[in-house]
Amino acid sequence: MTSSTRSTFAPVSDPYQHTENFRRAFNSGDAAAVEAGLEDGAVFVRGPGDPVTGGEASKAIADFLALGLPMDIRDRHVYVADDIALIIADWVVEGTGPGGDHMRMEGTSTDVIRRGADGLWRSVIDNPHGTTRPAA
């Protein structure tokens, strides 16, 4: 990650600002910007029932960003208990996809964030699919 990405999209000190910071990072199209808000070893849920970490998580994030579509995301609930928070947020990704067709994806995410020793909040679990069930 470049130092400019790190400084522009650094984790936030207020858990209620985490989602807005994520939206800005996502809409930059820069996977490193999105990953700046993740803890090392964080879980990214690539699809319902499909959690990944490390390089697989990085690839899944890059693939999602490769659609080149903007995200609108709004917190529905933020629950904070000491150094851990649960964020439930409604999101929409919509626009003209890489193939020229209109695309619309939406969901309700369930994300767990944690305050680090530096006082900044990072995602531990980033689950854009929320409670969506895996395909049978």
Rank of each mutant, 00 (worst) to 15 (best):
W121T: 05
N27L: 12
A36Q: 14
L69S: 12
D101A: 10
A57S: 11
A10H: 12
A135W: 00
P134Q: 08
G47A: 14
Y16R: 14
P70L: 02
R6W: 03
T96R: 01
S58N: 01
D82K: 13
N127E: 06
V12R: 14
V45K: 09
A136V: 06
I88L: 11
A25G: 12
G55T: 07
M105V: 06
I61P: 04
D118K: 06
G99V: 09
H77L: 13
G116H: 03
V52Q: 12
A135V: 01
S3D: 15
V92A: 11
I88V: 15
D83V: 04
T19F: 03
G29I: 03
P128F: 03
T8Q: 15
G130Y: 00
V34P: 09
D126C: 03
M103A: 10
V78F: 08
W91E: 06
L65G: 06
I113E: 09
D111S: 14
A10F: 02
G47V: 00
S58E: 05
R23S: 13
Y79W: 13
A89T: 01
D30W: 04
S109Y: 02
V124M: 09
G100R: 05
G95N: 08
G37Q: 14
E35L: 15
G116M: 00
V92N: 09
N21L: 12
R6K: 11
P48M: 01
G49F: 00
V124G: 03
T53I: 08
R115D: 05
V80H: 05
M103S: 07
Y79G: 07
V12A: 12
I84E: 04
H102A: 14
D83H: 07
V45D: 07
G100N: 05
S4Y: 05
L65Y: 01
R115Q: 15
E35H: 09
D63S: 07
A117D: 15
W91H: 08
I87G: 10
R115W: 02
H77D: 14
I125S: 05
G95H: 02
D82E: 14
